[in-house]
């Protein structure tokens, strides 16, 4: 119970953040993935927040527009040679593979993160990313900054 409560609170914290709100609203409207899975995916995405955001390049590249784009193609971000040479194009399958063990899939990557080992966490995360990376927040951000 406590953990459920806690989970709700973390989620509330994330949801409360104004930047995320549009992404969540989008996520719930008209996508096939159930809202509960997307909420879980968003919760897993909190693990990425020290280095990534949807809308801005940080220590890692922004995630808006991720699906369908070639690895290492976000303008204004300095990628490793390893990522530039990976030849990957991001979709549900490549993301699932990469996020399980980033350094195994792209040896030498600067994303020095062990990965998400739980397949259902990963699936929820990838489903969330697919929706969030095309959300209103991303459209708005694209208009603000070149």
């Amino acid at each position: 119970m406590r953990q459920v409560l806690g989970t709700t609170m973390v989620l509330a914290l994330v949801v409360a953040s104004a930047v995320w709100l549009p992404a969540v609203r989008d996520a719930r409207a008209g996508d096939s993935a159930p809202a509960a899975d997307l909420a879980r995916g968003e919760e897993v995405y909190a693990r990425c927040a020290a280095c990534h955001s949807l809308t801005e390049n940080r220590t890692g590249p922004r995630h808006c527009g991720l699906f369908g784009r070639a690895a290492a193609s976000q303008p204004g971000f300095q990628y490793s040679k390893a990522m530039q040479r990976s030849g990957l194009v991001w979709d549900a399958a490549t993301l699932d593979r990469f996020l399980r063990a980033p350094l195994d899939v792209v040896p030498g990557t600067k994303m020095t993160y062990a990965g998400i080992s739980d397949p259902s966490d990963r699936a929820a995360l990838v489903a969330y990313l697919e929706v969030a990376s095309r959300s209103e927040a991303c459209t708005a951000a694209a208009q603000e900054s070149p």
Binding site: S17, A46, R47, A49, A50, A114
Partner: peptide
Amino acid sequence: TSEAAVLEFAAKLERGAVSAYAGAIPL
């Protein structure tokens, strides 16, 4: 635009940092 928004933003980064280090430790 408010103290709470700033705190939430900082909290999000710190929560992420916990995971970032957790993900670095085994490497």
